[in-house]
Nucleic acid binder design. Structure first.
Lengths: 233, 233
DNA sequence: GACTGTGAATACCTTCACAGCA
DNA sequence: TGCTGTGAAGGTATTCACAGTC
């Protein structure tokens, strides 16, 4: 789970992309945002007609926020995609990154809590990336239930278990107040959700081991205020 | 900057809270979210009338997302607040945490980019924490400029430099598309902003060393989809 | 006996540096 | 010569384990 595995039998030249990865390669949480950054940068270079890139050139594209050594380590774990002395061909790299990151699939999202945060997230993510589709929205406030959003009706949270299972949601987004978040999370998982994005500032404490990412907006601001109040002294 | 410093002259019993911390204690980025979590949990316990807490009890409150050893290490760096054999008194702990985290001050926020994300953030943060005040909002779209939000008018981004300086904003929030984000960031810093919360998925590449926190919503979702697509195989 | 404070041990991630190929 | 792939080194954060104190 922690350690990225490396293909033990590197192959030659025309690499069968889809099979190049070991079956269960899992990268750690710190490397994935990097892979995603590589994908963005390389897709841009690709659009400009570039065909190859070196680890140094890619570091340059990323404003040296990531070192070339780090890039090589990361890309190496994707399979034998580089050529010593030459660099990396961009096309297979982009394909492989997309495969590993799950960019090829479409994902069905359920949003629980349709306040400002839930609303903004729904609009933002569907506008930004086509691979995400919001297929269910829940709230418990009578004033919100029944509202329309892009042709979809906000459901009562009480219906969550049934609706989430029915619509086959993969990903749950929690944008409810902290006290109710853990219970909502467990219900989402029971209904078949495999991953959760949690905006509530509380641990979810799930029985089932499921992938969770926490985003704590007030917490991020607090990191900033800590530094400011230190400097002020 | 990296290493939390420890008061070299620990004092006895009635600790003058405000002075207990060394003048320039700065905790690293990984510890601050933890301190914030402690503060939340302890404020809750305090509200329930609890007076003392042990590192183990606090770990319990946090659903063991943080180990008791980690908690002791963190709290130790705040000053001599614990009593061997007894635990920690909650009140001074909460005060000290608030001091270190900058929870006591008020912070003046400028938001650049008033699309869904900027709008949601403004509403969310002012509703959630009184210590944050949104004092300036900018956008470059003519349809957005001049809009009202809680009695404030959205300004033209062209006015940013003047208005941010005039209103004494401490914190800038960037919710604009990635390509323009670095330029906006530099202008914010030049106008006096000391810390930036960045929602654009791009490095800001600032000349001036200023505190920046990045939140990449699409990136967070991608971490989830990576894991899902691994499991699917 | 209980619990903190903390050096030592461990685990983890990143960078270095260079062997191996083109 | 140029650049990847990778073991080894370095640095940092977390956990262990226990001496010190109440």
């Amino acid at each position: 789970m922690r350690q990225a595995m490396i293909d033990p039998t590197p192959q030659r030249d025309p690499i069968p992309i889809a099979d190049a990865l070991p079956a269960r390669a899992i990268f750690h949480e710190l490397s994935i945002p990097r892979l995603y950054a590589y994908h963005r940068a390389l897709a841009g270079a690709q659009a400009e007609g570039k065909r190859t890139v070196t680890s140094h050139a890619l570091a340059e594209l990323l404003d040296h926020t990531i070192s070339s050594a780090q890039i090589r380590k990361d890309l190496c774990a994707l399979g034998p995609l580089g050529r010593r002395g030459r660099g990396y061909a961009i096309n297979p790299l982009v394909e492989q990154l997309a495969l590993v990151l799950g960019l090829g699939h479409d994902w069905r999202i359920a949003i629980v809590g349709f306040g400002f945060l839930g609303h903004a997230f729904a609009t933002f993510i569907t506008a930004r990336e086509r691979r995400f589709e919001v297929v269910a929205i829940f709230d418990q406030a009578p004033s919100v239930i029944g509202q329309e959003w892009q042709g979809m009706t906000v459901s009562d949270s009480a219906q969550l278990d049934r609706v989430v299972a029915q619509r086959g949601c993969n990903i749950g987004v929690i944008a409810v107040p902290a006290p109710v978040a853990p219970a909502i999370a467990q219900r989402l998982v029971n209904a078949g959700v495999q991953a959760i994005l949690n905006f509530a500032p509380t641990p979810l404490h799930l029985r089932t081991p499921v992938m969770v990412r926490n985003i704590d907006l007030a917490g991020e601001l607090t990191i900033l205020t800590h530094h400011l109040s230190c400097e002020a002294r």
